[in-house]
Amino acid sequence: MNNEKGFTLIEMLIVLMIISTLLLITIPHISTNNSVVQKKGCEAFIKLVETQAHTYEIENGDFPSSITILMDEGYLESETCPNGDTLTLEPNGLVKLASEE
């Protein structure tokens, strides 16, 4: 009956130490990439708003005067980027961050 197989306490502690080390290495790396992801998400959202504004123009014959119109008509669900920046719609069809005005 001495032939039981299983992990010893030392083996379990070594595995936990390895997992903890990996977590300590990866968590800071993930948090630094978060700002890059939010910036790319905002760039993609700006392109989406511009596309939806042109779609509105094709369907209604005139260009929307604000992003609020696009939201009211169901073309968009939000006027803010994933990072919280507010967008504005220019008369020429370009979208800008409200902070760039």
Rank of each mutant, 00 (worst) to 15 (best):
I27N: 01
I27F: 12
I27G: 01
I27S: 02
I27R: 01
I27H: 01
P28M: 09
P28W: 06
P28K: 07
P28A: 11
P28G: 10
P28F: 08
H29L: 15
H29S: 15
H29W: 15
H29D: 11
I30N: 03
I30Q: 06
I30C: 08
I30A: 14
I30G: 02
S31M: 12
S31G: 01
S31R: 14
T32C: 07
T32Q: 15
T32F: 11
T32S: 14
N33A: 09
N33F: 11
N33G: 15
N33D: 09
N33S: 11
N34P: 01
N34E: 13
N34T: 09
N34D: 09
N34Y: 12
N34C: 06
N34G: 02
S35E: 11
S35G: 02
S35P: 00
S35V: 10
S35M: 06
V36A: 10
V36Q: 10
V36H: 05
V36F: 07
V37T: 12
V37C: 05
Q38D: 13
Q38S: 10
Q38C: 05
Q38W: 01
K39Y: 09
K39T: 13
K39L: 10
K39Q: 11
K39F: 10
K39D: 13
K39S: 12
K40I: 10
K40R: 07
K40A: 12
K40W: 05
K40N: 08
G41M: 04
G41T: 04
G41Q: 03
G41L: 04
G41A: 03
C42N: 06
C42D: 08
C42R: 08
C42I: 02
C42M: 08
C42V: 02
C42Y: 00
C42S: 14
C42K: 10
E43I: 07
E43S: 09
E43R: 01
E43C: 01
A44R: 03
A44K: 01
A44I: 04
A44Q: 03
F45K: 06
F45G: 04
I46P: 01
I46N: 00
I46C: 03
I46G: 02
I46R: 03
K47L: 12
K47P: 00
K47N: 10
L48Q: 14
L48V: 12
L48Y: 07
L48K: 14
L48S: 11
L48A: 11
L48R: 13
V49H: 03
V49R: 02
V49E: 01
V49T: 06
V49I: 15
V49K: 04
E50A: 15
E50S: 13
E50K: 10
E50I: 11
E50Y: 03
T51D: 03
T51F: 00
T51A: 12
T51H: 02
Q52H: 06
Q52T: 12
Q52S: 11
Q52K: 15
Q52D: 05
Q52R: 14
A53R: 05
A53I: 07
A53P: 07
H54Y: 05
H54M: 13
H54T: 10
H54P: 00
H54D: 08
T55N: 14
T55V: 13
Y56N: 04
Y56D: 00
Y56S: 05
Y56V: 04
E57T: 13
E57M: 09
E57Y: 01
E57I: 00
I58E: 07
I58F: 02
E59Y: 05
E59K: 09
E59Q: 11
E59S: 09
